[in-house]
Design a protein around this nucleic acid. Sequence first.
DNA 1: GTCTATAACCTGATAGAC
DNA 2: GTCTATCAGGTTATAGAC
Lengths: 204, 204
Amino acid sequence: MAKKAKADSDLSTEEKIKEAARKVFTRKGYAATRTRDIAEEADINLALLNYYFRSKGKLFEIIMAEKMQQFFGVMEPMLNNTSTTLQNKIERITSAYIDLITHNPDLPLFILSEIRNSPEHFLKITGKASALFKSVLIKQIQEKKPDRNPLHFLLNLMSMCVFPFVMNPVLKKMGAVDEKTFAKMMKERKKLIPVWVKSMLEAE
Amino acid sequence: MAKKAKADSDLSTEEKIKEAARKVFTRKGYAATRTRDIAEEADINLALLNYYFRSKGKLFEIIMAEKMQQFFGVMEPMLNNTSTTLQNKIERITSAYIDLITHNPDLPLFILSEIRNSPEHFLKITGKASALFKSVLIKQIQEKKPDRNPLHFLLNLMSMCVFPFVMNPVLKKMGAVDEKTFAKMMKERKKLIPVWVKSMLEAE
DNA sequence: GTCTATAACCTGATAGAC
DNA sequence: GTCTATCAGGTTATAGAC
């Protein structure tokens, strides 16, 4: 991720196709995407897509795996870090999610809707739950609220970070926010969400 | 909504098609849905779909309008109610959203992803923002936190109610929750979310 | 590796019999 | 109103020339 300044024409054909596929698949979803859209976006001949990736489905699987890693990878480095406080972990996760999705606004809706439809692509995430529940992060939450399912708080954290981006297109079309206001709000939320989560963990 | 016990065979052909369209469209989205899927689900002949609704697109518009009303209608009755406290409004909105989506699990992802793709279907929600910002609900939030954009709190409320349902398929596939646990958690959240929102409004 | 042309298939929609 | 048969158009994928 050091240098992303390369123009499309500097990339190999294969990478140009992948870059175009990332863009089109995440924006429109698998079903609404035509291989022609990808070819056009990549500025290459349609036949080359099949030459490099065999099929639309194969290309999709590659992009999907990549995007799932991106989306779920945010929490991973924080799970078993024993040298940070819970509050610090929450701050880092908040910041990482808001930064990631700010630069990939289509990511959450893509992941969440494609996972629901395609029963094949998450063999890679299956079974990660045990690792989650044995994590340091979960233990730190349980110390604060031993009688409550700790998933509640993880869900709240993710909800408040991710869901506003999912609502953003709707809010815009309602005229409730413009792009500038939304960006400003999400920047504010980097500070606010950790405060809110803390107050939730102390509530009742 | 008094009696939903009618079997499919009791419904008119037109209503059977609409019922099937609700199910298939909300589950798979517009692009991934084939008119043949709907016909099969409705147990009718494919040609009848066009006989009653002219086209796939026309049928979709009907279902979409219905579903948008369902989704955004939840908040409407609370917006300008002058005889309830903020806390009471939050409790009612929470309860209404969780009940609605419990019975229509595919609703949020359907609304949110179809709105992003189709630039035609929300002429009906466009411009509702002014009504929102002039509402009693917003004023009551501003009384509590005058210096903060009140949208933050509405977003938090919706996030915590809606987003867990959107994550549910993922959580299931990870093995993080089973159906029973999830249902139990969402029932708990009816009580918890209002408490959490209250603590957020008093934080800092 | 890249292109053109086309095959093979799928999907929405309709014509016309009943 | 409902059915069968079929058309027209679009989409993925490949064959074959360069």
